[in-house]
């Protein structure tokens, strides 16, 4: 399997790590914007994330955010080399120490191996969120601060597919904005699928690409959006109760999450995912990337209309 490109990348990794032996390099599935590789250097396991060609946005501030999170005691992989401004591997990259665990939601929710993890995960996610929200973000440059509601209003308008339930949601969200004075570092995609779990529970929080400055309740609520329960019966990541999440968060931060504020963010989160479903189907329909998987996501828009309808009927009486 060792192609010339493999050998070249192994040699490059050896140079940037100052390691004498790099081996077992293999490609993992990555996102649309970057490629992910796993390898060993002098007997230790590492993960390389490298920007794909033609992606001018690079790694953004993710390596800086990860390093700050690690220093604050948030369970995250340790950044060993921040190559976000380096050309040593041709394109921007970072190398982190490998963390072991499972990320596939279906397995975490159903496999016997995670039976104990399921009982503690909601609390652990509450504690980890409290820690990450306490990070001093003033030293991290380039963090987005855009208002989520305004941002997704524009995304939906650009897609040009109006949905009456989503309009009611926008109307209600605009009129009932929580009076949040807190602006902290927010993970931005805090949910099952982006966390690593072993038999004991949470081992790492991954995928910090959407980190930004905002209201901390956004993260707690996103974790509870029904899509991210993956069919699980309980609100928090499919496995836990709001109570477990809130108590752990309060113990670690001293801040008691207000259920109404979390609910506001959960309705916004559901609206966001509904709009993202339209956008993903549109990626197929417009021909940007033809894919029956993306096409099928278009028929998940109504799940979010349904959830918004259910939630709004409880508050609109």
């Amino acid at each position: 399997m060792a192609s010339p490109q493999h050998a070249e990348l192994e040699a490059g990794l050896g140079r940037v790590l100052g390691a004498s032996r790099v081996e077992s390099l293999r490609r993992l599935t990555g996102g649309a914007s970057r490629e992910t590789w796993r390898f060993q250097a002098d007997g230790n396991d590492f993960v390389l994330q490298r920007v794909r060609p033609g992606r001018p946005d690079g790694l953004g501030c993710e390596p800086a955010v990860l390093s700050a999170a690690f220093a604050a005691g948030v369970p995250v992989p340790e950044v060993v080399v921040d190559g976000s401004k380096s050309t040593d591997l041709e394109l921007p990259f970072m190398i982190v120490r490998a963390v072991e665990g499972e990320t596939i939601a279906r397995k975490i929710l159903r496999d016997d191996e995670f039976a104990h993890a399921r009982t503690v995960l909601a609390s652990q996610l509450g504690t980890a969120a409290a820690k990450l929200h306490s990070i001093d973000h003033s030293q991290i440059s380039g963090l987005a601060t855009s208002d989520q509601l305004t941002m997704y209003r524009k995304v939906l308008d650009d897609l040009g597919e109006p949905h009456p339930v989503f309009e009611i949601a926008f109307r209600w969200l605009e009129k009932n904005r929580p009076l949040s004075e807190v602006a902290c570092l927010v993970h931005g995609d805090y949910r099952l699928g982006n966390v690593m779990v072993n038999a004991e529970g949470l081992t790492a929080i991954l995928d910090w690409e959407l980190a930004h400055v905002g209201d901390p309740m956004e993260d707690l609520a996103w974790l509870c959006v029904r899509a991210w329960r993956f069919g699980g019966a309980f609100p928090v990541a499919g496995v836990g109760s709001y109570q477990q999440l809130f108590v752990a968060y309060e113990q670690a931060s001293g801040i008691s999450p207000h259920p109404d504020v979390v609910r506001w963010w959960e309705i916004l989160g559901t609206l966001k995912w509904g709009i993202m479903c339209i956008a993903q189907a549109n990626t197929h329909l417009s021909g940007v990337a033809r894919s029956h998987e993306l096409a099928a996501i278009g028929r998940r828009v109504c799940e979010n209309e349904y959830d918004i309808l259910t939630m709004l009927r409880e508050v609109l009486v």
Partner: peptide, 25 residues
Amino acid sequence: LADVLTSLAPVIEDKVRVSNPKYLL
């Protein structure tokens, strides 16, 4: 708005019944 939601409910339920009936609560 609450009345509009009530009017929309059967239509949204129809959509879910076609795309993913198991999703209905």
